[in-house]
Amino acid sequence: MQDFEIIEGLDNMQMDAVMALLKTTHWASHRSEQQERLAMEHSFCYGARCRKTGRQIAFARVVTDYGTTYYLCDVVVDPSLQHKGVGRALLETIQTNPLFRDLRGILVSRDAQPFYAKFGFEKSDRGMVKPAKES
């Protein structure tokens, strides 16, 4: 049995834990709780929770148009628990969701491409990004 369980839905996310996880990233460490809460309210939220402590140890969001594409974002696992299957379980849960299973998935990653390749994501040179204004 795994030491963690996958959780789904905004109501099951622990906002303090999500913010602490995001603070460990290069892409979201500057976000305010207000920004993140708004983003989460308009996304499908996933996480992993430690069975022993009940503490949330991972987070991911999915944004979709329901017909063609989903955007996988904010995937983060507690740094001390990486390489223990948490991220894999999170991605497997997301990718088997009937809402996303047959859609094209996109994501932005500068350093985890080998991890996402295991789930069928491929590098593309067609992408462009317009950065958000720093608040």
Rank of each mutant, 00 (worst) to 15 (best):
V129Y: 01
R49E: 11
C50R: 03
D3W: 10
G120D: 00
E33S: 08
M128E: 00
R51P: 01
A89W: 00
K84G: 02
W27Q: 13
V108T: 10
K118P: 00
L107Y: 02
N12V: 11
G127P: 01
M128A: 01
C50F: 00
M1T: 08
I6W: 06
T96P: 07
K84V: 04
I7D: 09
D16N: 15
E92S: 01
C45S: 14
T93Y: 01
R61N: 07
M13R: 11
Y46K: 05
H83W: 03
E8R: 15
Q113D: 08
V86R: 04
S109C: 14
F44V: 08
L22V: 10
L72G: 00
L107E: 02
R101C: 12
R49D: 10
G120F: 01
A20T: 12
H26V: 15
T93A: 08
H26W: 11
K133C: 06
G9C: 07
A48Y: 14
G67E: 00
V75G: 06
V86H: 05
K130H: 02
A48Q: 11
Q113F: 04
F119M: 07
I94M: 04
Q56H: 06
D111H: 14
C50T: 01
Q113S: 07
T93S: 07
A20Y: 00
A117E: 12
S109H: 07
E41I: 08
L91Q: 04
Y116G: 01
A17T: 12
M1V: 06
R101T: 10
S32A: 07
T53G: 03
R49L: 02
R101V: 11
V18F: 03
L103V: 08
L10Q: 13
K23G: 13
M128D: 00
A112W: 02
T93C: 09
S32K: 09
L107F: 03
Q2T: 14
A117S: 11
D65M: 01
P79G: 09
N12L: 14
A28Q: 13
K130W: 05
A58H: 01
N12Y: 09
V77K: 06
S109G: 12
S109D: 06
A60H: 05
E33P: 11
V18H: 03
V18D: 01
L38K: 14
T68L: 15
A58I: 09
G67H: 06
R110L: 13
M19G: 06
A20G: 10
A89D: 01
M15Q: 14
G47N: 02
L38F: 15
D16S: 15
Q2Y: 12
Y46D: 00
R37E: 10
P131K: 04
D74T: 05
H42S: 15
E5P: 13
P98T: 08
Y70K: 06
N97M: 02
V76A: 08
Q95Y: 00
V108M: 15
Y116F: 15
S32V: 07
S32Y: 07
S32Q: 08
E5D: 15
T68H: 14
R37S: 11
Q14V: 07
K84W: 00
E33N: 08
V77W: 02
Q113L: 10
K23C: 02
A28K: 05
D3F: 15
